[in-house]
């Protein structure tokens, strides 16, 4: 006879709020198998919010960072301006001298509407 406590398997639950939203971790629940875990997930954690997709995954199958890994691998030096727009801010002044506007994030992301005028 299998142990009754084996009924309680831990599943992690993820969901998406909308088409543009990323998958997001919600919480975890106990269920004997993934079919049931999926069937329980939405009503347990997303009763009051929009949901367009749900994933469940057995907790054992998630390779998580350990406590040490979290503390050691997530630290970075603050010397990476070259990777971000922060390191190129001086361009704004340069372009201004040439009577041009800066092609910053706001400007570039607005190009999805380009040609619609």
């Amino acid at each position: 006879m299998d142990k009754e406590s084996d009924f309680y398997q831990i599943y992690e639950v993820f969901s998406r709020r909308g088409k543009k939203a990323p998958m997001q971790h919600q919480f975890s629940l106990l269920a004997p198998n993934e079919e049931m875990a999926l069937m329980m997930a939405q009503e347990n954690f997303m009763r009051r919010e929009e949901v367009i997709d749900v994933w469940v995954v057995k907790q054992n199958n998630v390779r998580k960072m350990s406590s040490e890994e979290r503390q050691q691998w997530t630290k970075r030096l603050d010397n990476k301006d070259y990777r971000t727009t922060k390191g190129y801010g001086y361009l704004r002044k340069k372009w201004k001298e040439k009577e041009q506007g800066m092609l910053d994030e706001k400007e570039i992301l607005s190009w999805k509407e380009v040609g619609k005028k």
Partner: peptide, 12 residues
């Protein structure tokens, strides 16, 4: 039978 089911059943 278990808490998770209680919550799901109640929504139905």
């Amino acid at each position: 039978p278990h808490i998770e089911e209680d919550v799901a059943f109640s929504s139905i």
